[in-house]
């Protein structure tokens, strides 16, 4: 079985006015089915760019990205939307739930865009997903009636409802307190044990520690790729880039 995610020499260059910003400068790695990977890096390191590419929200300038065997860099926007719908479950820092809809309706939303599933079955599958994240008793609640942790659970259920190849979480605990964060991370762990492939993007070492493998990005390059248990013993990598800092970086930052 080939890798769930196969990234080769991935580059992404933004053109902002007269500057070319090299956000990703050639990154390669594989992620196997069932892994739990944290992608770490400080802000401006290119990890958000990498997340957008892995999430099929963006297409690379150069290099290749295969998700579950699909050559993503070759797909047109319509197919990318279908790939996002069926292969990827997004979890965002800001939850991004529709305020007017109940938890159940929010979770069922991706199934509507998939098409061909009767409404009753959509709600049934949404209810099953909510049970999986421990919210069986909150299905008819609207987001404002739920705590932050519960809202994020609803978002995770929404990400799971299409049985995606990949659960892609972007700072999922960024808006939560420490205790709730631990609960959410425990949930990710439990889902991963059940076989869900999880990719977590974060800048917090405490959060990244819950993963089993760590990818560290700096200045658009992969600087470390190691199991989490070897993280503390390994040389801590440059806290300040030694030679990689490019003049363009300050321009990019000011452009942002």
């Amino acid at each position: 079985m080939s890798a769930m995610i196969a990234v080769r020499n991935l580059e992404r260059t933004y053109v902002t006015g007269e500057f070319e910003v090299h956000a990703l400068r050639g990154v390669s790695f594989d992620i196997q089915r069932g892994e739990f990977v944290a992608i770490m890096g400080p802000s401006g390191s290119g990890k958000s760019t990498l997340m957008n590419l892995i999430g099929c929200l963006d297409t690379p300038t150069a290099g290749s990205y295969h998700l579950d065997g699909l050559p993503v860099e070759l797909l047109d926007p319509m197919l990318l939307a279908a790939v996002r719908n069926r292969k990827i479950g997004f979890v965002f820092q800001q939850f991004h739930l529709l305020a007017r809809n109940t938890a159940l309706e929010n979770v069922a939303l991706p199934l509507a865009y998939r098409g061909g599933i009767p409404a009753a079955e959509r709600l049934e599958r949404a209810a099953a997903a909510l049970e999986r994240v421990g919210l069986a008793d909150r299905m008819e609640h609207r987001p404002h009636e739920l705590s932050g942790g519960q809202q994020q659970r609803v978002a995770i259920a929404r990400a799971l409802v299409n049985n995606p190849a990949l659960l892609l979480a972007d700072e999922p605990t960024g808006a939560l307190d420490t205790h709730t964060s631990a609960e959410i991370m425990a949930l990710f762990n439990a889902l991963n044990r059940d076989g869900v492939t999880v990719v977590l993007i974060t800048h917090e070492p405490d959060v990244a520690r819950h993963a089993r493998r760590l990818l560290e990005i700096r200045d658009g390059l992969l600087v470390r790729d190691l199991p989490v248990e070897r993280w503390d013993s390994s040389p801590r990598g440059p806290t300040r880039p030694r030679s990689r800092r490019l003049p363009v970086r300050s321009q990019w930052r000011s452009a942002l």
Partner: peptide, 25 residues
């Protein structure tokens, strides 16, 4: 694609066709 793990084949084309179908009613 230089480093593509798999070449595009009939199986992939079928997968892409399957992705193109469906959509919201």
């Amino acid at each position: 694609v230089a480093a593509a793990p798999e070449p595009i084949d009939a199986e992939l084309a079928a997968a892409l066709n399957e992705l193109e179908g469906g959509g919201i009613g």
